[in-house]
């Protein structure tokens, strides 16, 4: 398998704070990569850097399907197929649910007329189970629906790699199970996924591989089962005492 995403030696500092230090990893085609790590370990910053919203790395290189994105702006990165979601549920509050999707669709979707593009948008809503809500203002739907809407708008951008930032945060247990199914379904559809999450059960059930960040560095990498038993990981999460119990 080829690497759909290759990250080589990226770093990012904010003044004296080094948010990401010399980080390298790769994502294979059709793989789901989980990212875990304590709060402040640089997970969300990593997504910011990858998509250049709002900033790129200080150094290092990012390749999507073999092609470097160094000189590209955020919009071109989306066009290359690298699309993210945000940690907090985010929406265009004054647009309707379907307009949230429509505004995210690329130019090519609008070449065959208005009805066709609406139909397309409806398919994305249907995919995440929001078709019934299509004409409601996005500000009026539930938190869970807004999280799903954010994924629908990301899918509307036709990602090759979907970056999910804590998709299950704040969800109830049945909703988390549904989210796991949704991520698996997206992956089966041929989209590679990187998912940041604190909920270990989600990470274990969707990820082929798991990496753990700590202080902006790669702490551990491997299969989910191995990584969560790694003493260094337990130490990073729970402090040194827990690792030796």
């Amino acid at each position: 398998m080829t690497d759909i995403l290759a990250v080589q030696g990226i770093s990012k500092s904010f003044g004296a704070l080094k948010a990401i230090r010399n980080l390298s990893f790769s994502l294979k085609s059709n793989e789901v990569l989980g990212i875990a790590g304590p709060n402040g370990s640089g997970k969300s910053t990593l997504f910011n850097i990858l998509t250049k919203v709002p900033f790129g790395p200080d150094e290092g290189e990012i390749r999507v399907a073999g092609e470097s994105v160094s000189g590209l702006g955020p919009r071109q990165i989306v066009e290359r197929g690298l699309v993210r979601s945000f940690q907090t549920e985010t929406d265009f509050e004054t647009l309707s649910v379907i307009e949230n999707v429509l505004v995210s669709m690329p130019d090519s979707d609008f070449r065959s007329g208005k009805a066709a593009s609406r139909q397309r948008a409806r398919e994305f809503l249907d995919y995440v189970g929001l078709a019934a809500q299509q004409d409601r203002p996005a500000s009026e739907i539930t938190v869970y629906d807004r999280k799903k809407l954010m994924i629908a708008t990301a899918l509307a951008c036709r990602p090759k790699v979907l970056l999910l930032d804590e998709p299950a945060a704040g969800l109830s247990r049945p909703e988390v199970s549904e989210m796991i199914e949704l991520i698996k379904r997206i992956n089966l559809g041929g989209i590679s996924v990187i998912v940041i999450e604190h909920i270990i059960s989600l990470l274990v059930s969707v990820s082929n591989r798991l990496i753990v960040l700590n202080f902006g560095e790669l702490l551990a990498e491997g299969t989910p089962q191995d990584v969560i038993r790694d003493p260094r990981v337990i130490e990073a999460y729970l402090g040194p005492a827990a690792a030796h119990e």
Binding site: V53, V83, D91, F92, E93, T94, V103, A154
Partner: peptide
């Protein structure tokens, strides 16, 4: 129009709009 949605999307949430490929 699509143009109008983009304008409103940038008003509602600029980083989100940019992350969905809206040309700022």
């Amino acid at each position: 129009s699509r143009f109008g949605w983009r304008v409103v999307a940038l008003r509602d949430n600029e980083p989100y709009a940019v992350s969905r490929g809206v040309p700022l």
